[in-house]
């Protein structure tokens, strides 16, 4: 090989299918952090997310021949991780069944209460570690139906269509949940980042 460019996912998948020993482990290294984040954000549980991480790559390897390249490899991995995570969540929830409709029906979440500008850029005021902790805790506080949509659309940056397809939702349902998730997170983060002790419109 003369190229110094890292091999593409598609190339590694093809190599792995033909029995190359290094190709699949390379894909695992490339995406394990992000798959662990998806799992953690959906299950809200360390033990479950570690299981999901492993099961995702085991299933991906087993079904690699079935991956036809109709979607990006990463999107395909996220789909497996999302299914595994939701299964874990269902298992833990058996004692406490809350229907999704019930969970999403209050409508109160689109009401915005915290109207205040933020004090500078959070990225400048907090370390990556502190921000990550805060962002994860805030996502964890969302209802599952909002959390799944937000994680796929705004954290993993999948398209609306991919998100709808993965969760078995209509496009309007994805958009409506995404709006409410974004507004709830904005509200919660504003409580942390707002200018303290000032009138909300002091900037005017």
């Amino acid at each position: 090989m003369t190229s110094t460019e890292p091999p593409t996912d598609e190339h590694l998948v093809e190599l792995a299918k033909t029995g190359d020993n290094g190709a699949f482990p390379e894909l695992v290294k490339r995406y394990s952090r992000r798959i662990l984040r998806v799992a953690r954000n959906i299950t809200n549980n360390d033990e479950d997310s570690e299981d999901v991480l492993q099961e995702t790559f085991m299933k991906a390897y087993t079904h690699l021949d079935g991956f036809q390249g109709n979607s990006r490899f990463y999107t395909w991995l996220v789909r497996i991780a999302m299914n595994e995570s939701l299964m874990k969540l269902r298992k833990r929830k058996t004692g406490r069944v809350v229907s999704l409709d019930e969970e999403l029906s209050t409508g109160e979440d689109t009401i915005t209460r915290e109207i205040a500008v933020w004090e500078g850029n959070p990225e400048d005021r907090y370390s990556q570690e502190e921000l990550r902790e805060l962002l994860d805790t805030t996502i964890a506080s969302l209802p599952e139906g909002f959390r799944t949509v937000f994680v796929l659309r705004d954290v993993e940056e999948l398209s609306t269509e991919e998100t709808a397809d993965m969760l078995g939702l209509s496009i309007p349902a994805v958009k409506s949940r995404l709006l409410r998730a974004r507004l709830q997170l904005r509200e919660k983060l504003t409580r942390v980042f707002k200018q303290k002790g000032d009138d909300a419109f002091a900037f005017l």
Binding site: S32, R33, R34, L36, R37, L53, A116, V117, W118, N121, P122, E123, Q128, L131, R132, L135, D154, V155, E157, R182, L183, L185, R186, L189, T190, F193
Partner: peptide, 18 residues
């Protein structure tokens, strides 16, 4: 403005190392 910033910090936050 604050919703844009919310999305920006989520998108800009690198995942933790395994």
């Amino acid at each position: 403005d604050t919703t844009k910033k919310t999305l920006k910090i989520y998108k800009g936050c690198a995942p933790k190392a395994v």
